[in-house]
């Protein structure tokens, strides 16, 4: 069975999702500080990798990478509520792109498996 990544159209669909997702998190007061870096292109590249991974596409992230990449943010107070807000924004992004609710639920569930890595627990 093909991955959700393939079903929604692969890399071009992810490109479209990145701009929408990035706008949402920058506008979300709960988490915008974590995303408001000086280099927007570098931020967008990270988000592309994140969304690709979330959709089960080809990616090189491991749980260990997620832990290392977020350690400095945990020190700044990254917590469960922020994690939930990111998942919520990704869900809203995919909804805008016409991904069915059931599929979004599956994605959110699989992202839950990363929670402890991201929050360094």
């Amino acid at each position: 069975m093909s991955s959700i990544y393939e079903q929604i159209g692969g890399a071009p669909a992810v490109d479209a999702a990145v701009d929408i997702f990035y706008r949402k998190v920058l506008a979300d007061d709960r988490i915008s500080d974590f995303f408001d870096g000086t280099d927007m292109d570098a931020q967008a590249a990270k988000q592309k990798a994140f969304i690709t991974m979330a959709l089960g596409g080809p990616n090189q992230y491991t749980g260990k990478d997620m832990r290392a990449a977020h350690k400095h943010l945990v020190k700044r107070g990254l917590s469960d509520s922020h994690f939930d807000a990111v998942v919520e924004n990704l869900g809203a992004t995919l909804q805008e792109l016409g991904v069915p609710a059931a599929t979004i639920g599956t994605i959110a569930e699989s992202l839950g498996g990363l929670r402890n890595d991201v929050l360094d627990r």
Binding site: D19, Y22, L26, M40, D41
Partner: peptide, 15 residues
């Protein structure tokens, strides 16, 4: 440059 880039992006311009 950074401020404008962010504002243009948030206003709908593709990055």
């Amino acid at each position: 440059v950074r401020l404008l880039k962010k504002k243009l992006f948030l206003a709908g311009m593709p990055l």
